[in-house]
Design a protein around this nucleic acid. Structure first.
Lengths: 192, 192
DNA sequence: AAAATCTTATGATATATATCAATGGAATAT
DNA sequence: ATATTCCATTGATATATATCATAAGATTTT
């Protein structure tokens, strides 16, 4: 149940057994099924979720009523609407389960306790936030000023798992192109 | 010389006079003129810079040799290539002065000392990183799946100063459109 | 002050991508 | 098992944006 979390933490820092036990106890396991919502627009995000198994996707609904996929999240990743979590304002994003999930839920107060009590945990979390920042940054660079073909090519290099685990029209939305365009890009790509 | 920094820190946290003095001492003032480089592609970013006065812009050079503007930075903002700073790998970005600057340079080791010694400084810096993350996030949402007109409209709402302080072709690059398109968007916009 | 360079604006054309439409195949619900 | 809904593919067409070209203003350099 806590394998992935243990692994994720210990890839970056070392905790003593006691610290790890203390850490663990603050998480609450939760199973969720496809199409359920971890967070809905308008609610406030008061917890972080670590994904032991499964996947989710985050999306906004634009003025025209279209879903715009903001990001995906898989096994071993954290997921939350940090905008809402940090500021306490209502979420503008929805987080929906893509593949049945086993999550570890960490409430905000528990998280803040851990930050104070376990220096290693705090370091771990700072690194996670740094990485999230860097990933977003890379995403910006891959989203602006590239053709549809280039975007696809970069996605294949960087996140090939997206194409296997996520319906194609969601990937298209994530890349900022129509599903038809992504389909054509792919057929062009596979031909050559 | 340290007015903006003092203001920035005390907008978010409180430091005692002593802490503030200690903090200050780790920064080294530096003047830079338009077109000088704070960081060049290939170098490693080993410092953070706080902008007391002036502005800079960060850009990457793509395969076709075109500048792609990644971000701007103005008075009261921090600037660095965090990718390079965090990972220690060579920068893929250039940071160039746009308007003559007064900077406060903070070396990585000094920064890390301050994080350890002054809890308020650490909190301040965590908030800054959170805000940087949120700003990037917003940028993604404004970059993907919007028309040129919509991108412009959002920029006006959110960062009108860009249009007054930055040459238009750099703003165009930042928005991921050609300079001609931005010019046309603007003329359409001003007409109506 | 004049020359040179850079920046913006605007028109004409080309191109990439979106949209609309139809089909067959998958997944899901009955 | 059948019906229903959803999804990916492919073609035809429309549209937004890029590119090319030119000229008028700005800025910077000499």
């Amino acid at each position: 149940m806590f394998e992935q979390l243990y692994k994720s933490i210990h890839e970056h820092v070392s905790l003593s057994d006691e610290e790890w036990q203390q850490c663990k106890n603050n998480f609450r396991p939760k199973r969720m099924l496809k199409r359920q919502f971890l967070l809905q627009e308008g609610d406030t995000c008061r917890q972080l979720a670590f994904i032991e198994k499964g996947s989710l996707f985050t999306y906004a609904v634009d003025a025209g009523g279209n879903r715009r996929v903001v990001r995906f999240a898989f096994d071993g990743w954290w997921v939350a609407d940090l905008q809402s979590y940090f500021t306490g304002s209502p979420a503008m994003l929805n987080i929906e389960v893509l593949e049945d999930c086993e999550l570890l839920i960490l409430d905000k107060t528990n998280h803040e306790n851990l930050l104070l009590k376990i220096p290693g945990y705090e370091r771990y979390h700072r690194i996670i936030l740094q990485n999230a920042y860097l990933a977003l940054h890379e995403r910006i660079e891959n989203a602006i000023g590239l053709t549809a073909d280039e975007k696809y090519e970069r996605l294949i290099k960087r996140n090939p798992e997206f194409l296997h685990r996520v319906p194609q029209h969601l990937v298209a939305s994530y890349l900022g192109m129509s599903p038809e365009t992504l389909s054509r890009v792919r057929s062009r790509f596979n031909r050559s």
